[in-house]
Structure formats: structure tokens, C-alpha cells
């Protein structure tokens, strides 16, 4: 039986009158890749910050590696590595100096420091750039260096907050190769947040989070099976009207978003000809595919993950700012 390395029970965090995390509960097994999927401002970073002992929960409990995040934060910190959303390297130091700094403050014995620095740099293929200033590194190299740094004290859990945000697709794939290798070779548990669907597909299990609440936890396959059958997307000028028509005529649940209507059905190939025979509303184009995690999100929340992004981020920032200035 696999042990739970993270247990979270009714965790709540409020900033003034905004409830960023609203009573979430879940468990992560040792050696698992566990993803938090949701739009920006859904409470992903706030949750990760509480698990990393950066933020104190307003209510509820959480343990990481058997240590309570409020009662023994130092024990939690020793057992985790963190890769933040924003870069946190000193770019006036070399790669080696950044790692040495980290190894020291995490209490890695001096006899092991040089060896471990070499190991982790080899893992992310930066050993040849050890003595270069971080300032000259590209975005992808900095990210790799941060992953290496997060591993140097042999953590049991590695937290990654939007690990590939702002990186190009090729670099993103590259980073994922490292992460998957890492799990295979070292058995490190990975806990990550993302709003990229492709990234979430790499996880063993995903928690879908929206407005501070977890709405589903399952494997990617399990979540997609929940959508049921094929996904049909229709583009039309009158998307609202079209959705209403479809809903009244067939036994499906169609939702209209941004000029398109999507719904799922068991036998997509046969459904489309029927649809075109029956409907009078003009349809611009039609698309049939297997369900993705995006569809899961749309079905569960009634909207797409990306469209609200800007709004939510702004709202969160404003609240955080207002809350800070009040203190």
C-alpha cells in the first residue's frame, strides 16, 4: 500500500473578505505526480504556499511528509523542494554558487556539497555551464537550474508552481522529460499547479480547482471518461440559439462559449449527419474529437479555462494588494 505523503483537510485561506482557498481536502501518494489544474486566481498558488509553509492557513490542516505545516514548518521545509512561479535565482552569482548557497542553507553536509551540485547539474544538463553567471542563461536554462536547486537537499516532495509558464513548447517538453525521469529514478513526489492542459496530461492524478474549491480529483483518463463519448464543437454566429435548439431536441448538454457550441455524445460520427438534417441555424464549421481536459473543465464549470484568466488574475492581485496595504 502506498503511503500518503500529503494530506490536506478542509484547508481555508482568506485575504480580508476574499476566500482564496475555500475548504479543500485531498491526499497525495508517495511517488505520485499530482497536478492542480485551474484558471489563474483559482487558489492554486495559495494552496501551494500553505503547503510550503509560506502562508499560514486561516483554517483546516495539512501535513507534508508526516509533518504539520503550522506546528513544524522547519521539518516540512527540510523535506520539500520548491520551484516558484517567478524566477528566484541570484543572477549575479554563477550556477554553482546559487546551488552552493541553497545546499548550505538546507544543511547539506560540506563533504557532500560538491558531489551533489555536480549530480543535479548533470541531470539538467547544465554541468558544462557551472561557472557561468546566471545572468547569461536563457529562460529555459534558469528553470532547469531551479529544478536542480530544488533537488539538491534530496526532498521527498517537489512543489512546482506553473513550472513551464512563459516557456516555448520545445523547452516545455524538455523540462517535462527531466521531471518524468526524476520520478522514475528517484521516486520523488511531484506536486504541481498548471493551467496548461497538455501539462496536466502528464500527471498521475489531477485535482480540478475553481474559485477556491476542488470540483473533481481523478486520473486524466478517468476525468475524460466522465465527459462521456466524443466531443462535438460547432462554430456559429448564433451560438446561444444553437445551444438552446440542440438541448431541446437531443439528450445532450450543449454549452455555448465564445461563438462556439460544444457537447459530448456517444456516437459522434453518426450524430453529425443527423444534426445537419434537423437544424435550421447556420453552422460555420464542425469538429469531432476525443474529449480533452479542457472539455472536462468546461463541462464542470460551464466555461473555458482560458477566457477568464485575465479577469481572475486582476481580481486576485487587487485583493492581495488591498489586503497588504490594510495591514
Amino acid at each position: 500500500m502506498q503511503m500518503n505523503i500529503i494530506t490536506v483537510t478542509d484547508l481555508v485561506r482568506r485575504f480580508g473578505d476574499l476566500t482564496a482557498v475555500d475548504g479543500v481536502s485531498f491526499q497525495v501518494k508517495e511517488g505520485e505526480i499530482f497536478g492542480f489544474l485551474g484558471p489563474n486566481g483559482a487558489g492554486k498558488t495559495t494552496t501551494i504556499n500553505m503547503l510550503c509553509t509560506i502562508l499560514r492557513p486561516t483554517d483546516g490542516h495539512a501535513t507534508v511528509g508526516g509533518h504539520d505545516v503550522v506546528r513544524s514548518p522547519m521539518s516540512v521545509r527540510r523535506n520539500i523542494g520548491i520551484i516558484f512561479q517567478d524566477p528566484s535565482l541570484d543572477d549575479k552569482l554563477t550556477a554553482r554558487e546559487n546551488l552552493d548557497f541553497h545546499a548550505r542553507i538546507y544543511g547539506v553536509p560540506s563533504s557532500e556539497r560538491a558531489g551533489r551540485i555536480q549530480d543535479v547539474l548533470e541531470m539538467v544538463e547544465l554541468d558544462g555551464r557551472m561557472n557561468d553567471l546566471v545572468r547569461v542563461f536563457s529562460g529555459g536554462m534558469k528553470r532547469r537550474l531551479e529544478i536542480a536547486r530544488g533537488l539538491i537537499h534530496h526532498p521527498r516532495v517537489l512543489f512546482l508552481d506553473e513550472p513551464t509558464l512563459g516557456l516555448d513548447p520545445q523547452t516545455r517538453r524538455h523540462i517535462w522529460e527531466y521531471l518524468l525521469d526524476l520520478r522514475k529514478e528517484k521516486g520523488v513526489t511531484l506536486f504541481l499547479t498548471t493551467h496548461y492542459m497538455e501539462e496536466a496530461e502528464n500527471c498521475d492524478r489531477i485535482a480540478i480547482i475553481d474559485n477556491g474549491k476542488i470540483i473533481a480529483v481523478d486520473t486524466p483518463v478517468g476525468l475524460k471518461d466522465g465527459v462521456g463519448g466524443d466531443v462535438i464543437t460547432l462554430h456559429s454566429e448564433n451560438s446561444e440559439e444553437l445551444a438552446a435548439q440542440i438541448n431541446s431536441r437531443y439528450e445532450v448538454e450543449a454549452t455555448a462559449t465564445n461563438g462556439s457550441v460544444s457537447f459530448s455524445t456517444e456516437d459522434g460520427e453518426e450524430f453529425i449527419p443527423r444534426l445537419f438534417r434537423d437544424l435550421s441555424t447556420e453552422i460555420g464549421s464542425v469538429n469531432l474529437r476525443r474529449p480533452t481536459l479542457e472539455d472536462v473543465f468546461v463541462q464542470m464549470t460551464g466555461r473555458a479555462i482560458r477566457e477568464e484568466e485575465a479577469d481572475n488574475t486582476d481580481r486576485m492581485r487587487q485583493h492581495a494588494r488591498a489586503w497588504r496595504s490594510r495591514r
Binding site: R77, R78, L89, H102, I105
Partner: peptide, 16 residues
């Protein structure tokens, strides 16, 4: 500066 460029976070979450 460290706070602005993120490095302070690395120090604040360390077990020291």
C-alpha cells in the same frame, strides 16, 4: 532588490 527579483523568497522558505 532581492525581494523584487525573487531571490528573497528562496531564502524565506529555507529551513533556517
Amino acid at each position: 532588490w532581492d525581494r523584487e527579483f525573487g531571490f528573497l523568497k528562496e531564502v524565506l522558505v529555507a529551513p533556517i
